[in-house]
Amino acid sequence: MSWQPGAGLEQLRARAGLLSTLRRFFDARGVLEVETPLLCSAGITDPAIEPLIVSEGRSLAAPRYLQTSPEYAMKRLLAAGSGAIYQIARAFRDGEAGSRHNPEFSLLEWYRPGFDHHALMEEVAELVCACLGQRPWRKLSYRQLFIDSIALDPFTAATSDLEARARSGHDLGDLSGDRDFWLDVLITHQVEPWLAGQGLCFVYDYPASQAALSQIVTEGGVAVGQRFELYIDGVELANGYCELTDATEQRVRFATDNERRLALGQVARPVDERLLAALEAGLPPCSGVALGVDRLLMLATGERDIRRVLAFDWERC
């Protein structure tokens, strides 16, 4: 057992400098800094995200979820007329630990009323350049990304072809799953290594089945979610949406998520009725993005392991 920090003084100073740069960036643009609660009574329905739950204490009428992101609370502020807002918050995701993951981590999340996801991508690029220095950046649609990197069209290829390609060169044992499962194997095992040579690259317009909380539109004959991811040298850094504002559609997505959770043997999660009520009242058209601050710091300092930029990683606290 070691009492000492995993990050050096240099990394601690770099973090302080980065936080200061982020706040200056938003201050200069008139984006309001906000704080929202870490402990929430509703969790997240996404089958791929598991929250940590706090279940003891006299203040608790029921267990509360440590937030996996401040998204729902920030959308309630937007619906209340906050205008552009940002937050630098701790978020928690159960079971996510490795060289790029810590179960407790720092998220920078911000929302821009009136922006579509392409306008927000530009602002993300400006912010990243403000932190890491000027550099070129590019955008690739999810479809073009797969075609350029592994010569498969993710929208039209047969699921069996996606699986066959996923298995080539990789021992996947008896893994099985649906179309999105194989796309996830391909992007993590074969596409991300290709992205490692692409510098700062946005990937946008995901399959509608991976839209999460983004607007779904038809582009090039296929339904796409207006969602984007930012990769820098193959490191996934940020996820953004042209936000879904329709309360009815949001309720359907929550229900669909919970059906998938049950089919996968997971427990269903209570839906956030306060968020739905806020959408009902009216969320202004906006785009929002969440960016991993610890990973941005890794890129700024050249560290390849997240544990080297955290004062005390999961095993040290």
Partner: peptide, 15 residues
């Protein structure tokens, strides 16, 4: 060695 990988959204894997 055990490496945790996850796309931005979606299924997580251990390589």
């Amino acid at each position: 060695e055990n490496e945790f990988v996850k796309p931005g959204k979606g299924q997580a894997f251990n390589r």
